[in-house]
Design a protein around this nucleic acid. Structure first.
Length: 336
DNA sequence: TTCATTTGACCCAA
DNA sequence: TTGGGTCAAATGAA
């Protein structure tokens, strides 16, 4: 992860100085991400062709592969590479600092300890960053249009985690954008499950995304890893759906699905599956609609019902960004 | 009943 | 004195 962490920090977010990664590494990562996006587009074409006229399955494949392509686009944005096309407006675009910068938006901060954000980002979905946060305050900031919300790690007390973040709406666009500032590093073990934990459980992820660095890589890089993590689950789920459909249409051998077919895909999904998260308003339960879509597709598989294979997509917040992108809608009520 | 959020009050640095 | 950050009681949802 060393390379990606450094690149993510230097490329899109913060524009930090002291870039230590080589241009070659940067280009290699962008090249691979671009290739991934192109292959996803091809896969989408193939899938839609194969599933043409099959209603629910076609829509499911289309949705999932659009999400995979979006994940690549977001990663490319984070890496500072101009996307081939902008992400769809309804999709949360994360990571690129445009304007304003924190110093522009913030009133001058006092020189208190830990008052300098170790990281900041502008996103349309400020709630989902892989950690559990608990809101402890909200203040109207003078000369700004929107209040600032204060969050601390949910394990602040029980594990003495000092990580905090501040979220402030910074544009009234559609969707609105939020400036998220992070203070202090997580010291709670709870943060370790994602994505480091999944990488530990899945050597492929760890190999692709060298996480050995761990610390200074920061959340933006972690978010990139998370995108990859989501992509793997989505691809695995899709492979399961498509594989089973082929299975349904032709014998397993003819479809080329034996040990490497749906079961393998499910295994990958299992490996990549994070442990269950506590349901908080910050990280709501997965949207029922998308879960049902996948369930429906899977339920059509002969012998591959969701329960039968244990592909528990319901527990993975794949569509959280989509469904809760505006969940930070701040009330217009009286602020302090 | 438990837990997260809201919000007025308080603390503290500039 | 002012404004930002935090505390903690009140409130609401599950």
């Amino acid at each position: 992860m060393q390379a990606q962490s450094r690149l993510a920090m230097s490329g899109g977010v913060g524009g930090g100085s002291g870039i230590s990664s080589s241009d070659d590494e940067h280009e290699a990562v962008i090249r691979e991400l671009t290739r991934g996006r192109q292959l996803t587009a091809r896969l989408r074409d193939e899938a839609l062709r194969a599933l043409r006229g099959q209603g629910q399955a076609e829509a499911t494949a289309d949705f999932i592969l659009q999400e995979v392509a979006r994940a690549f686009t977001v990663c490319l944005n984070i890496m500072g590479s101009p996307p081939a096309r902008a992400p769809p407006p309804e999709m949360p675009a994360t990571g690129l600092i445009t304007s304003p910068t924190p110093t522009e938006l913030m009133a001058p901060r006092r020189n208190r300890e830990d008052s300098i954000p170790r990281e900041h980002t502008v996103t349309t979905s400020p709630h989902y960053d892989g950690y559990q946060w608990r809101k402890y305050g909200q203040k109207r900031i003078t000369k700004t249009q929107y209040p600032r919300c204060y969050y601390r790690c949910s394990f602040h007390r029980e594990r003495n985690c000092r990580a905090t973040k501040q979220v402030q709406q910074c544009s009234n666009g559609d969707p609105p954008q939020y400036l998220v500032m992070y203070f202090n590093d997580h010291t709670c073990d709870a943060a370790a499950w994602e994505p480091e934990a999944s990488a530990a459980a899945n050597p492929a992820v760890a190999m692709q995304l060298d996480l050995s660095d761990g610390g200074a890589g920061g959340l933006v890089a972690r978010r990139g890893v998370q995108e990859e993590h989501e992509r793997q689950v989505l691809v695995s789920s899709l492979a399961c759906v498509l594989g089973a459909r082929q299975f349904h249409q032709s014998p397993p051998d003819a479809a080329g699905i034996t040990s490497g077919g749906p079961s393998a895909a499910v295994n990958v999904a299992r490996q990549a599956e994070p442990p269950h998260r506590a349901r908080t308003r910050d990280a709501p339960a997965p949207a029922a609609a998308s879960a049902l879509v996948v369930d429906d597709a899977a339920a059509e598989m002969p012998g591959l019902g969701v329960d039968g294979v244990g592909l528990d997509i319901m527990d993975y917040d794949v569509t959280g960004e989509l469904c809760f992108g505006d969940s930070y809608g701040l009330p217009d009520g009286p602020y302090q």
